[in-house]
């Protein structure tokens, strides 16, 4: 366990509130994520998990409270910079289907950061080697399996050298036999010291990798605990109820 008190938190939510129309989807959410900390967020569908992590890089506007990334408040002016330092992996991969794997991974470095093509490609190929997808570089997303696509999506985010990675149910759209390759990639990433916020239902992954597990229900954080405490001695009845249903 890390002690967040001494350094600036990587990501911090302070009393965040959000509404979709009249639906109050985030209610007074506060959470501090330390540098290099791995957080797994779980909860029933519609509990606001995805919405919460999408607030970190400004994909969702919120109406109350503050989100801080690396100590700075998230203002409209800071959003572009935050997006370049926070990587995100989506449930539905969202690879750009008109571009090859290599082009997918160099698009943002070249056009967003202004890195020259040669350097961006070299950087991407390094990442491919580490994630064991080097042979896919010139294929199009449509030619890849779901697991391969999601690993490419992770590589695409890593090519921007992010300080924080957000995972929005990265394995939910995968066939069962492909889940493990993606989880292995994420485990490797955790071992490299990445700060990670993962929305996932993979409880095995949570046990092995997470520093803390967050349980959300009805737009609020109900319980936060280290994995062994969370799984062995859940305190809130809703948490117990949820765990009983998914385990």
């Amino acid at each position: 366990m890390t002690s967040p008190a001494t350094t600036t938190p990587a990501v911090e939510f302070l009393g965040v509130n959000k509404w979709f129309g009249t639906a109050h989807v985030l209610r007074d959410v506060s959470l501090a994520v330390a540098q290099s900390e791995k957080i797994v967020i779980c909860g029933p569908s519609g509990s606001g998990k995805s919405t919460l992590i999408r607030c970190v890089n400004g994909l969702e506007p919120y109406q109350g409270g503050t989100v801080r990334v690396d100590g700075h408040d998230l203002t409209p002016a800071r959003i572009p910079a935050v997006r370049r330092s926070v990587g995100m992996v989506f449930q539905s991969f969202n690879l750009f289907s008109h571009l090859t794997v290599l082009e997918n991974c160099t698009l943002a470095p070249i056009h967003g950061r202004g890195i020259d093509r040669r350097a961006a490609e070299a950087r991407a190929r390094d990442e491919f080697a580490r994630l064991a997808i080097a042979d896919l570089a010139d294929r199009y997303p449509g030619q890849l399996s779901g697991g391969q696509q999601q690993r490419v999506a992770i590589a695409r985010a890593l090519c921007l050298d992010p300080a924080v990675m957000l995972f929005d149910e990265p394995t939910s759209a995968l066939d069962p036999e492909m889940v493990q390759e993606v989880l292995d990639t994420m485990t490797d990433l955790a071992a490299r010291g990445m700060t990670m916020l993962c929305v996932t239902h993979e409880m095995g992954f949570a046990r092995r990798v997470a520093d803390r597990v967050v349980f959300m229900d009805e737009g609020q954080i109900v319980e936060v605990a280290p994995p062994e405490a969370f799984f062995e001695r859940p305190e809130h009845p809703r948490t117990r109820d949820f765990l009983a249903r998914i385990l």
Partner: peptide
């Protein structure tokens, strides 16, 4: 799909870049 534009934004591209480089070509 909406995810294409969101992924482009999440990578730090501006709205204009997302439209020009990702959405419009497709």
């Amino acid at each position: 799909p909406e995810g294409q534009g969101q992924a482009a934004l999440a990578l730090g591209l501006t709205k204009g870049q997302a439209m020009r480089l990702v959405i419009l070509p497709q």
